[in-house]
Design a protein around this nucleic acid. Structure first.
Lengths: 239, 239
DNA sequence: TTTCCCCTCCCCTAAAATAGCGAGGGCGTC
DNA sequence: GACGCCCTCGCTATTTTAGGGGAGGGGAAA
């Protein structure tokens, strides 16, 4: 069975996988197939919820969650701004918390090498599919070059599965904002005062407030700043 | 040269493509390789900007832009809420404007069949990679099943290229926020009032103001909401 | 036709944000 | 050791925003 066929077979398995257990089993199979130490699918929702499956030790996962490493991990912060898959070497590990995190991660069995594929879903959903291994730079470069596309496809497939599994997704299906609301929120997010926004949109400030207020309620936000944050996270506005 | 090798060669070409002309040339080569009528990469930003390349006729593209079909096209509205690639048949073409749009599209040479891969970038960027053809359902089903993964990869690759071409990205490298500033901005972005944030962080409200103020000045933001928007856009905080 | 949403305008008060002036201790780098 | 940055706290002042009402016309969809 050639490489291509094995790849196809594994992707087929992944496509047919149903449920969290199946995903967990698939990720183990994938790790074995690629001969790497770890593979992890990690989902981060905009409200801080996390969900994932993979081969990291339970201790490390628990520690990661408990210590809120989400906000420290350079893999997260780095990939959040990028679209293309990224080798961990290209991230910024220079800050002190980053280095401490890195040392701790390695101590918990995470490989010294890593490759993470960021994936984004419809409403600001953000996920990472990470492959990690313990080897030298050359071997890792060869691996990533050889398997880059497969890893992207696997990441894509995992995210599709994860979206299906996600139970309470879109309890409020995040009603779209009206054009005027988008205008208003965009300008507010750009830092203009309400008076300026109203003038820019050629409406009264009172009308503007109605837009902001209705956008806020649509987004389920607690206040204007929160509404702007949510609109941005969900890609409803761009600043 | 077998099909797989041709595919690899084309993906390689795409990876190496530099500039808009190269992308345009690649998309023509891809269309020929897949024996379909049209392939289009279409980038849509929430503020109305559009950018794309593909094989649709100039007349149709112009008409699409002029008539603001973005807000009508079921392919756009449908894919915007999904993650997985979607066959046009599975979209909702029932509304009156949709049907009118569809008829007009077909009259302009767009195929009756279509397959669109949605892609999302870092800050609410949304793009579509569409393949369109004129054939019966059975042939199309066979095509999409055979080439689904390749199309996803191509879409991914196109978006990567498009993001590189996108001007104005990160012109000013903003100074990093301090841990405390990140805490403060994150909680503010989550909609808590200053009093709540201060209590959560166990600091006085005044200290909190200092953080917000210094974050605001670091980010070059006009006000708190603007600062939150910038911090989010730059991936400095996650909400 | 009725209902729902969008757009527009106006009132109010309390809370929040902005702006300026300060202070001191700690930690790391040059 | 000096400098810069981070963390913490104090004060006063003005301006802006938040959030709660209500009201009417228009357009699209059910």
């Amino acid at each position: 069975m050639g490489k291509i066929e094995r790849r196809e077979a594994l992707l087929g398995d992944l496509e047919r996988a149903q449920g969290l257990e199946a995903l967990q089993a698939t990720i183990l199979a994938l790790r074995d197939h690629f001969h790497v130490d770890h593979m992890v699918y990690h989902w981060v929702s905009s409200n801080g919820e996390q969900f994932g499956c993979g081969t990291y030790s339970d201790v490390w996962v628990q520690r990661y969650v408990d210590h809120d490493y989400l906000r420290v991990d350079p893999v997260i912060t780095g990939c959040y701004q990028r679209f293309h898959p990224v080798d961990w070497k290209r991230l910024d590990w220079s800050s002190k918390p980053s280095r401490a995190f890195q040392a701790e991660a390695i101590a918990h069995g995470v490989g010294n090498q890593g490759f993470s594929v960021p994936i984004r879903g419809p409403i600001g959903q953000f996920a990472l599919f990470t492959t990690s291994h313990n080897c030298d730079d050359e071997e890792w470069a060869r691996f990533t070059e050889d398997n880059r596309r497969d890893l992207i496809l696997i990441a894509h497939e995992f995210n599709e599965k994860a979206l299906e599994l996600q139970p309470g997704r879109t309890p409020e299906p995040s009603r779209a904002l009206s054009p005027r609301e988008i205008d208003a929120m965009t300008l507010v997010a750009m830092g203009y005062s309400r008076a300026q926004v109203a003038e820019t949109l050629s409406i009264s400030e009172h009308t503007l407030r109605v837009y902001i207020e209705s956008a806020r309620s649509k987004l389920g936000a607690l206040n204007t700043t929160h509404a702007v944050a949510r609109a941005l996270s969900r890609g409803l506005i761009v600043v």
